[in-house]
């Protein structure tokens, strides 16, 4: 999970990456909770849950249009952006970031939120491609294959 986020670390900077990896100034090691994993897993679960809802629970003949699938994607992206940005920003506000990590700004938190949007798009699209086949009414939404 962390590897994926680190590929995109140019969007949120290496300082925030250190914090999210669980760096602790007390132990001098990555002993704090790995927020990449927590945020990544949460975002993945949210994306899968939204996919399952769209393809199997809603599974509606009037919701099998591309733009309705897009509505679900946008909701997922908003939630996952808020999740990623919210956790970073609350740590920033609460002063939970180790003092030996250079100053982190709101822009970097927004950058991480944006990164989580990219990760969520990939997760939602992949999940859609995998599970759509079992859907009665939406199996060709939005992909026509």
């Amino acid at each position: 999970m962390e590897t994926i986020y680190r590929w995109l670390s140019s969007l949120f900077g290496s300082n925030l990456a250190e914090h999210l990896s669980g760096w602790s100034e007390v132990t001098g090691d990555y002993t704090e909770a790995n927020l990449f994993f927590i945020i990544g897993m949460s975002s993945l679960i949210i994306s899968i849950a939204a996919c399952v809802t769209y393809y199997y629970i809603l599974n509606h003949p009037r919701w099998n249009r591309g733009f309705k699938w897009l509505i679900f994607l946008v909701i997922v992206l908003i939630v996952n952006f808020l999740l990623a940005f919210g956790i970073c920003y609350s740590d920033l506000l609460a002063g939970n970031i180790s003092s030996d990590i250079s100053a982190i700004s709101v822009a970097e938190c927004l950058g991480f939120g944006l990164t989580n949007i990219i990760v969520s798009i990939i997760a939602f699209v992949l999940c859609s491609l995998i599970i759509k086949w079992g859907s009665r009414n939406c199996k060709f939404s939005p992909f026509k294959f």
Partner: peptide, 15 residues
């Protein structure tokens, strides 16, 4: 509950 009017017919056709 879920399918009303013609959506119910489409759902049945898809089934």
């Amino acid at each position: 509950i879920r399918y009303k009017n013609w959506a119910r017919v489409d759902n049945e056709l898809n089934r």
